[in-house]
Write a protein that binds this DNA or RNA. Sequence first.
DNA 1: TAAATACTGTAACTATTGTTACTAACAAAA
DNA 2: TTTTGTTAGTAACAATAGTTACAGTATTTA
Lengths: 210, 210
Amino acid sequence: MLEELKQHYGYMFEDELIQEINNVGTYKEIPEGFKLIEIGQYIKSMPLLVSGAIKILREDKDGDELILYFIEQGDTCAMTLSCCLGNSKSEIRAVTETDTKLIMVPVAKMEEWLSKYKTWQQFVLQSYHNRMSELLEAIDTIAFLKMDKRLFKYLKDKAMVNHSDVIYVTHQQIASDLHTSRVVISRLLKTLEIDGKIELNRNNIKILDL
Amino acid sequence: MLEELKQHYGYMFEDELIQEINNVGTYKEIPEGFKLIEIGQYIKSMPLLVSGAIKILREDKDGDELILYFIEQGDTCAMTLSCCLGNSKSEIRAVTETDTKLIMVPVAKMEEWLSKYKTWQQFVLQSYHNRMSELLEAIDTIAFLKMDKRLFKYLKDKAMVNHSDVIYVTHQQIASDLHTSRVVISRLLKTLEIDGKIELNRNNIKILDL
DNA sequence: TAAATACTGTAACTATTGTTACTAACAAAA
DNA sequence: TTTTGTTAGTAACAATAGTTACAGTATTTA
C-alpha cells in the first residue's frame, strides 16, 4: 500500500502524513458495480482513490437515479468529507464504475489531520472545491443541454473514465443514469449513429467522435 | 459592527475571533439588486451575512441565467471560500435579493484563521457542507420537477427570504431566474391562480398556499 | 396630453420529451 | 431444442415546454 500511496499522493502529502495514512488506512480492491456508499448511510471511513473510477448518483423520491459525475484517481469523495464532518447521513450513492483500488481512512483521523497537516487541510479544501465545480457542471448539463447533447456527453465521459472508446452498457442503464426512459435513449442513440458519431451494437456502444 | 457580530456569530466564534473579525472586517449595507460577485471575477474578500438575503446564479453560454439558491443570515458564500482557497475565478454570480448587511473579511485572514481557530475551521467546513446540500437541492429541483412545481417552489422560497407573502417581481424576471421564457411563466402562473394557490397582480404576486 | 415603454394575457403552432404497445433478435436456462 | 428473459427498434400518441405573434392595460416620459 505504501508504494501506491507514494505514487499517487506523494507529490501532495509529506512523508509523515503518508506514513500515518499507511498505518491507519486499509487497502481495498473493489470490483466494478459495487455499491460503496448508500443514501442515508452514516460514513465511518473515507475513500482515497488509487485507481479506477466511481460513479456518484442522486435519487428522486420514486427511487429513480441521476448521475452527478465520475470521480477518478487522486480524488476523494467530498460528499463523504461533508458527511463525516457534519456527522450527517450521505446524500448520494457511490458505485464503482470500473475495478477500483482505494485506501479507506477512518473518520477520526481525518479530523485530527485537519489541524496537524497543512497539506491535508489543503487536500480537503481542494476536494471540496473540485466537487463543487463538478456539481456546477452537472447543473449546467441538466439545466442547459437538451437530452441529445447530454447523452453524447455522458457517452464521452464514460468512455473517458473507462479508458476505452467502446463502452459496455445497455440502453436501459443509460436511461437510468440520465433519469429518462429507455425508448428516449434508443431513439437518440439511433440518431447519433445516423450522424456517424457512434456505432451501436448489442450491449456495447463505440464512440467514434471522441 | 461588534454588536452585529456578537449577535449573529457570537454563539459560534470565540471572543478572540470575533475581535479579530471586528478589527479587519468592513461593515457594509447594500441595497437590493446589487451585484456582489460576478462570474470570472477574482475574489478578494469574503462576505459574512448579517441580515438580508443573496441570490446565487449560474449562467449558460448565451448569458442566460439560472438561480441556484438563496443565502440567508448566518451564512457565507462557500463559492467564495472555494475561489479564495483555490485562487480561482468565481463560477457564480451573487446579487442581493433584499437590502443586506454584511461584513467583508479579507482573504488573507481567512486562511490564517483556518489554522488558528478551530471554530473558524468548523464554520468553513460547515459552510461547504451547507452549500453542497443546496446545490444538491437545486439539482433535485431542476432534474426531478416539472416547471409548474419548480415555479411554485421558487415563489415560496422567494417569499421566505423576503419575509412576505407578496413578492414584487415581473413574469420576465421569474422566467430569467428559472431559465425559461416569459410566456411559459405567465401560462403556469395563471394555472396556479386558477388553482387558488396565488393571486396575480401587476408587478407582484401574493402567495396564498405558503 | 400624447407617445413610448413595460407588463400581462392568450392563441396557435413547433419542438422536445415521455408513454404505451408491439415486434424481433439474441442469449441463457430448463 | 424449447422456453424464458433480456435487449433493441420503431410507431403512435400524449404531455410538457418553447416560440411567435398580437392585443390590451398600466406606467413613464416627452
